[in-house]
Nucleic acid binder design. Structure first.
Lengths: 192, 192
DNA sequence: CTCGCCTTTTGCCATATGGCAACTAATTAG
DNA sequence: CTAATTAGTTGCCATATGGCAAAAGGCGAG
């Protein structure tokens, strides 16, 4: 019971009926990851996903020059998933790695499908999560085109201060689309 | 009947039963737009969406310096929609405009919801469309960070040659995250 | 056909950011 | 606690792309 408390912050009793929660919550099991563990590796097809209770993670891709580029950061209550690999059932290009020790609640594709097709509220919830990720990605993408590096950094600082505080500059830099050198200069106000 | 043929390229009889098509197809009506017509304007909440039968359209946002940035191009068989405004029921930041005369098949949110929650195949289809858009957006976003402007242009040329042929350089340039000046130089091989 | 307008090109220079290398600070392992 | 490794900083210069302005080209309206 104690165990279930966290998942109720995800599947709020305001939105979900008790009967629905009784179907959903038992389908998740708690899993722990240690710092640097991979939750997903390039080339695999994502079959599991997690809600992050505590800790931080990031996803990244390797570009054609062998550099890694952070595509997202995950923190408490986020869904940790590669949407396209999970739903299109294709091998992914992304890696997902724990940046700290993490406590997660895990489920799999088959279970997701069963809940998705049988519970309307779960469908709406899942769709909302996906669309919210889409929205964030679009804003990030536009920001890379339209804003200066410094503006993007300030934005991230406002949106996700806990990320900036807990994640290495190297990873933040590639997420912002710049090098660690430039980020260092931005942080020190050298290059306005 | 003739009318329905196009929608069957969207809702393929391979995937949908006749009984399902009979519920879905009548919910769409043909609508025509003229070049430069707006399908969606900044500040509005998207309540309609379209499948594009013929013509081209683009979506764009205005950045904080008053410049417009193309976020996507649409051509035959694409869903023309702002996913986040449509599903989150929020006012949009995007504009969608016809770049040529267009023939579209229109439906609305309420109808979508009814079909989505009652027909499993429709749900899967809708989710696949959304995830495919998400995937394309992520690739575009990574490409802006990892690839040179010239590489991005060549990529677009391969992926969507009909777009490059039919759309003004100004719009292609902002989609690629560069200025029309740079794009002109890239096209002429001046700046390798 | 021609005028006027909008798009594209190009010269020139400005600017943001990249990237090496060397240095310093912080963290981790033993 | 110390050594070893990793993360962050900074000087210096390189490079990709921006952006103005002027010219050239394409295209629709009358």
């Amino acid at each position: 019971m104690q165990d279930k408390h966290f998942l109720k912050t995800i599947f709020s009793p305001t939105d979900f009926k008790e009967s629905e929660l009784a179907l959903i919550l038992p389908k998740f099991k708690q899993v722990k990851f240690s710092k640097n563990d991979f939750l997903l590796k390039e080339g695999k097809t994502e079959n599991l996903y997690w809600f992050l209770e505590s800790g931080f993670a990031r996803s990244f891709v390797n570009d054609n020059k062998g550099k890694d580029i952070t595509t997202n950061f995950y923190s408490s209550t986020d869904v940790v998933i590669d949407w396209s690999s999970f739903f299109l059932r294709n091998p992914t290009r992304e890696n997902i790695q724990a940046l700290t020790d993490c406590v997660c609640w895990q489920s799999d594709f088959e279970t997701f499908q069963q809940l998705f097709h049988s519970i309307e509220t779960f469908r709406e919830h899942g769709r909302k999560r996906l669309v919210t990720s889409y929205f964030a990605l679009k804003n990030h993408s536009v920001s890379i085109i339209a804003d200066q590096a410094k503006e993007r950094y300030i934005q991230l600082l406002n949106d996700k201060p806990h990320i900036v505080q807990n994640v290495s500059m190297q990873h933040i830099a590639t997420f912002l689309g710049i090098t660690k050198y430039s980020l260092s200069r931005i942080r020190n106000g050298i290059s306005l």
